[in-house]
Amino acid sequence: MTRHEVREHIFRLLFMVEFHEGEELKEQAALYFDEVEGISEKNHAYILEKLENMIEKVPELDAALNEAAEGWKTARMGKAELTILRLAAYEITCDEDIPARVAINEAVELGKTFGGDESPAFINGILAKLMKRMGNDTE
């Protein structure tokens, strides 16, 4: 399974955070994995670990995104775009194994797949501002 495919599974599960909490979220994740074929035990464990880490950081990620998104707040963002931004923000700020440029590129690609027509530009713009705020310009 490619890193992009793993990231897509993480996105799909992280998206559930908007609709489920606690034990219900765990049950929904278990149902998701029951329906998806071809995920090795190693990838399954990796996906769940990343998901749990991201869920713990949602308040921090949202705060960083709110600071970077001038004129936008996470409460007003589309659920798909918000989930993509949370995933990328986590990768940029917390995952040293993923270069920021890769996280941004992958987020834009997820936006093309799961978001609206304007999603890729919106996602790219907010993540670029996040990087500038962190003192790490992507240009």
Rank of each mutant, 00 (worst) to 15 (best):
L110K: 05
E60A: 11
A69S: 13
Q28H: 08
V108A: 11
P59E: 05
S119F: 02
D117Y: 08
D62I: 08
V58K: 05
E67L: 15
E52A: 14
L85V: 02
I104M: 09
Y46S: 06
D62R: 07
A89D: 00
L110Q: 11
F19L: 09
V58C: 06
E118A: 11
A80D: 15
N53G: 07
L13S: 06
M77D: 00
E18T: 10
V102S: 09
E8M: 04
H9W: 05
F114R: 06
A30N: 09
M16A: 12
E24G: 08
L31T: 07
K26N: 14
F11P: 09
K50I: 10
D117V: 03
F11A: 08
L31D: 11
N66M: 13
N136M: 10
C94G: 14
D97N: 12
R133I: 10
I10N: 01
N124C: 10
F15P: 02
A75W: 06
L13G: 04
E24R: 13
T83Y: 01
L130V: 00
F33P: 02
G111Y: 01
A69R: 05
A63S: 03
L130F: 01
L51D: 05
L48M: 13
I104T: 02
V102W: 06
A80F: 08
R7P: 03
L61Q: 05
D95C: 09
A89H: 00
I55Q: 07
E27M: 12
T93N: 12
E27Y: 10
Y32P: 03
G115N: 02
G78P: 04
M131W: 02
L48I: 09
D137Y: 10
A107C: 07
G22I: 14
T93L: 15
E49W: 10
T138N: 07
Y90C: 06
F11V: 10
I10Y: 02
I47K: 03
E56P: 10
D117R: 07
T93I: 10
L130P: 00
E67T: 13
M54K: 02
E70Y: 04
E52H: 10
E5M: 13
H20Y: 15
M77G: 01
Y46A: 05
I104V: 15
L61I: 03
K129H: 14
I55V: 15
E18C: 13
N53D: 14
